[in-house]
Amino acid sequence: MLMTANSAELPPARTMSESELAALYRLMTWLSPSFPVGAFSYSSGIEWAVEAGDITDAATLRDWLSAMLTDGSGFCDSVFAVQTHRAVTSHDDPALRAIAELAAAFVPSRERQLETTTQGRAFIDTSRAAWPCEGLDEIIAACGGPIVYPVAVGLVSAAHGIPPEPALHAFLHAVVSNWISAGARLVPLGQTDSQRVLAQLEADVAATAKRAMAASLDDLGSATFRADLASLRHETQYTRLFRS
């Protein structure tokens, strides 16, 4: 084996603990495209944006998704996921209820409301059935009403003792991957172009997660008015492949 002068001085590679491996396994499963939350049915308004000519190729899809991620629902949903995780971890039921109510009210259109609440319920039901967790039912009850997708992810991750940062990165990767999948079918794009878009958004995902980890509920807000209009216009779109 080839040895360098400093090889003997390198510290041994860190081995992940059993709990860390379990958390990784669950995140890879829960935020996988194959996890049955019905994400493939929704485009978050991208279908109308393609019909309107706002998205025509890989470059315009990347720009649209970058805005949604950093200045729109991507950032806001990240804040809700992180704040939910912290409320569950600190056993603050009043705060958890307030976050769940605000997150449900923050959705800009009826179809997006249907999308995020349906996915939230499916995420909780499936993860609870496959990975029973002590105290999870009480945490869900404390929300007191509909649970949107980012709240569901933050809630279940916290209940299983998974740290918020990796949970948030996995959540954002799943959201962005679903957006790209919708765009790829609608534009359409090839698999290589789709992966290029995902790679180009890596820095935006990291930056959005970093902002959300440091943000409070007072920092919530979006500047993606065109994307919000797209989700509203989709409700009356004549031909539709997606539910939002």
Rank of each mutant, 00 (worst) to 15 (best):
A5V: 10
A209T: 10
A159R: 03
D204P: 11
V187D: 05
A103S: 00
L61N: 02
D193N: 04
P132Q: 07
A142W: 10
E101S: 07
E9A: 08
T236H: 14
Y238T: 11
R97V: 01
Q200R: 11
D218L: 09
L27Y: 04
L198H: 03
A23P: 02
A39T: 01
I180S: 04
A214C: 09
F123T: 07
A105V: 04
R128F: 05
S157C: 14
F80V: 08
L201T: 00
A214Y: 08
A223Y: 02
D219N: 15
R211A: 11
S177N: 15
R128V: 04
L189T: 10
A212N: 14
E134S: 04
S78D: 03
P132H: 06
Y25T: 10
E47T: 09
R185F: 06
I99F: 03
T89N: 10
V82H: 13
R196D: 13
V50Q: 13
R110H: 11
G53A: 13
A158C: 03
V205N: 01
T60K: 07
D228E: 15
S177A: 15
A95G: 09
I140Y: 05
R128I: 02
L155G: 06
H173L: 06
T4L: 10
P150M: 11
F123D: 08
R211C: 07
A170T: 05
S43F: 06
I55T: 01
A122H: 09
I55W: 01
V79Y: 05
R196L: 11
T89I: 08
A105Y: 09
R14E: 11
D125C: 15
L65S: 01
V176Q: 01
F171N: 02
F225W: 15
L21Y: 09
D137E: 15
N6T: 14
I46D: 02
A141S: 11
L155C: 08
R26H: 12
V79L: 06
G190E: 02
T89C: 12
L155M: 12
K210A: 15
E165A: 04
C133W: 03
A206F: 07
M16S: 12
D193M: 03
D125P: 15
F106W: 13
K210Q: 11
W64E: 06
S32K: 07
A141V: 08
D137H: 11
P188E: 06
L136E: 10
M28P: 05
M28A: 13
E111Y: 01
D63P: 05
A230H: 00
Q195W: 04
L69S: 02
H173P: 00
T56P: 07
G135M: 10
Y238K: 06
F171T: 06
G53M: 13
H85S: 13
V176R: 00
G38C: 13
L102G: 03
D71K: 13
A13S: 15
R233C: 09
P108V: 10
Y42M: 01
Y25R: 13
V151E: 02
A67M: 01
M213N: 08
L61Y: 01
A158I: 03
D57E: 12
G190F: 01
A100K: 00
